[in-house]
């Protein structure tokens, strides 16, 4: 859902600037009456859960006090516990690797496909639409399909490897491959987003620019690196930043495919935070919330960067 939501939001965000047509200002009370439901909603169902989460991370909760209240304030203790935990550094590393590698591949493949589809051949529009399918499927569908495809004994991927003479890989059950496996699935899901945004970026480049380059004798390769790529830089920056925000918070795919395992080898902040709060018999709500809040901070930093970049471009 994430990428889809954003793509269109971005579309929406741009023209949200004040309407230019001069007209009489309606009474403010009417304007706010129309806004009131959403404002109340945002406070009750966004701000309050986030506040609850912050509160969770600053108190020492037990299962009993979680239900009955009255947990003592403990300052940053939960954050200290989390940072000192043996899982912290591996989880941080996996978060960075998962996000970084996913982005590089999604972007590179998306770009290559966008350039390819921009050539407008027969059927290109239909095929491009078909590329959207992985993006629209429920994540549990994609994740469980990949789980079975990557199954060690009966998966079609290992069958394909075997038929070209490569030894089978324990994709999901070996600690050295689990992270790679979830990255592969995540790249597959993310390609359509990159393709669609970069494609629309390409459409905005006037054809005269290419004609001029062709007249100057530029080859196809030169045309891409000297003309397309530089002109596409603003769109690329936005695509990458947005992809970053959304890859940071990926939870479903990893949890469904590996549960962050084996032995934390594919644990990221998102899955770790869930595991602390819900994955054990004895829930650790405080530390779980602390990890979650660290994740929010990361996402919001890049989110702010993205909004800044977008504002600057639309001026």
């Amino acid at each position: 859902m994430t990428v889809a939501s954003d793509l269109i939001t971005r579309a929406a965000a741009a023209p949200a600037a004040p309407a230019r047509a001069p007209r009489r200002r309606s009474p403010q009370w009417a304007a706010w009456l129309f806004l009131a439901p959403v404002v109340i909603y945002l406070i009750a169902f966004y701000a309050y859960p986030l506040y609850r989460n912050l509160d969770l991370s600053l108190r020492h909760y037990t299962v009993r006090s979680f239900v009955q209240g009255g947990a003592p304030f403990s300052g940053l203790d939960n954050y200290r516990t989390v940072v000192d935990n043996a899982t912290f550094w591996p989880a941080l590393l996996h978060t960075v690797l998962f996000t970084g590698i996913s982005l590089i591949f999604q972007f590179a493949i998306g770009m290559a496909l966008a350039v390819f589809f921009a050539q407008n051949f027969k059927l290109s529009a239909t095929l491009r639409a078909l590329f959207l399918v992985p993006w629209l499927l429920p994540l549990i569908v994609s994740a469980s399909t990949w789980s079975w495809m990557l199954n060690s004994d009966s998966g079609v991927v290992n069958f394909a490897l075997k038929s070209v003479g490569i030894d089978p890989v324990n994709w999901l059950t070996s600690p050295s491959w689990a992270l790679t496996s979830v990255i592969i699935a995540n790249v597959w899901i993310g390609i359509p987003f990159n393709l669609v945004v970069l494609y629309s970026g390409l459409q905005a480049i006037p054809s005269e620019v290419y004609e001029a380059a062709a007249l100057d004798g530029a080859t196809g390769w030169q045309r891409f690196w000297r003309v397309t790529f530089p002109l596409l830089r603003p769109v690329s920056a936005i695509t990458l930043l947005l992809g970053l925000v959304y890859t940071l918070k990926v939870f479903d795919i990893i949890w469904i495919m590996t549960k962050g395992g084996p032995t934390d080898s594919s644990t990221t902040f998102a899955t770790w935070s869930y595991k602390l709060s819900f994955g054990n018999l004895l829930p650790q709500f405080g530390p779980g919330a602390a990890v979650g809040n660290l994740l929010i901070i990361m996402a919001l930093i890049f989110g702010l960067l993205y909004i800044r970049l977008q504002r600057r471009q639309s001026l």
């Binding site: 859960p49 819900f278 779980g288 979650g292 919001l300 909004i307």
Partner: peptide, 25 residues
Amino acid sequence: LSFVLLMAQMIPGIIMAMGFYAIYL
């Protein structure tokens, strides 16, 4: 408000879920 809505979309669902859990319980 538009800005808040944009930022709201970037909050990881898993964290919203934890807050909701505490409230719903």
